[in-house]
Design a protein around this nucleic acid. Structure first.
Length: 255
DNA sequence: ATGGCCTCGGTTCGAGGA
């Protein structure tokens, strides 16, 4: 069983890459962020033709999330029921005995800005909601674009990024509070090579220079972490024509 | 020193992303 997350930066533009990746990757569950599509424009037929059921919630221009699954999706919930939010950033479903939560955590733009305050409030509300969700769903996975690099080792140049948005103490503390629910960062369950990232700015040839950040994550509650046998970042789609600036992260779970 | 790319909406530029 493989679970994956991928910020596609417009599903309208990226649908061919998503379908190509699904053909080769064999993932069972794929969480997408930044679909940037209203629900009436969602490419349901193409995704079903690829062998996946899908749940989605979107809006015009910004945000938008979806869960693709080979197995049936049940009990779909859109957004955080405890946080009034016009922005479509969360969708959850039960799949094969697991509660899958797909999240597009706000970017925050700049430390101290209104968007940064919104990000911290949003993360607080996510934490408080999930604290109850994990009681009802011991097998819960939170996959998505967290817009947080948890540690300096997740940043190509920690000095340049020190205190900046995605790396600030308050954001990292929010990440640690999610880990204390408790949940485990699947990527850090295993020895990993250095300088592995999930996002690279389109500018400055940052991908070729591997100037990236690891901001896309899979957090697993202890029963799922115990079943996790691998967690990998697949850099290949970032090398394709017209790529997303993010690349998929995959966790493998034993039966 | 500055901005450097991509997407969208909707027009040829500004906002947002990270």
């Amino acid at each position: 069983m493989q679970l994956a997350t991928w910020n596609v930066n417009s599903l309208k533009v990226r649908l061919p890459q998503v379908l190509q990746w699904l053909e080769s990757s064999q993932v069972d569950v794929l969480c997408l962020q930044e679909t940037k599509l209203t629900d009436d424009k969602f490419p349901v037929a193409e995704i079903e033709a690829a062998g996946y059921q899908v749940a989605y919630t979107g809006q015009k221009t910004y945000n938008g999330v979806a869960i693709l699954s080979k197995l049936p999706l049940a009990d779909v919930v859109k957004n955080n029921p405890r946080f009034e939010d016009a922005q479509q950033r969360i969708i959850s479903a039960t799949i094969g005995g697991m509660r899958i939560v797909c999240a597009y955590i706000p970017n925050g733009q700049e430390v101290g800005s209104d968007k940064y305050q919104y990000k911290l409030r949003w993360l607080d509300a996510l934490h408080d909601w999930l604290a109850d969700e994990v009681k009802g769903y011991p097998n819960l996975a939170l996959l998505g674009d967290y817009n947080i690099a948890p540690e300096d080792g997740d940043v190509y140049d920690p000095v340049e990024w020190q205190g900046m948005v995605l790396c600030s103490d308050a954001e990292r503390a929010a990440f640690q509070r999610l880990c204390a629910l408790p949940m485990k960062d699947a990527f850090r369950l295993f020895p990993q090579a250095e300088k592995l990232y999930s996002w690279w700015d389109y500018r400055q040839m940052n991908f070729r220079r591997n100037r990236g950040l690891r901001i896309d994550h899979i957090l697993l509650t202890p029963p799922l972490a115990a079943r996790c046998t691998a967690c990998e970042i697949d850099k290949l789609p970032r090398k394709w024509e017209q790529p997303s600036d993010h690349t998929p992260v995959i966790a493998t779970l034993s039966a």
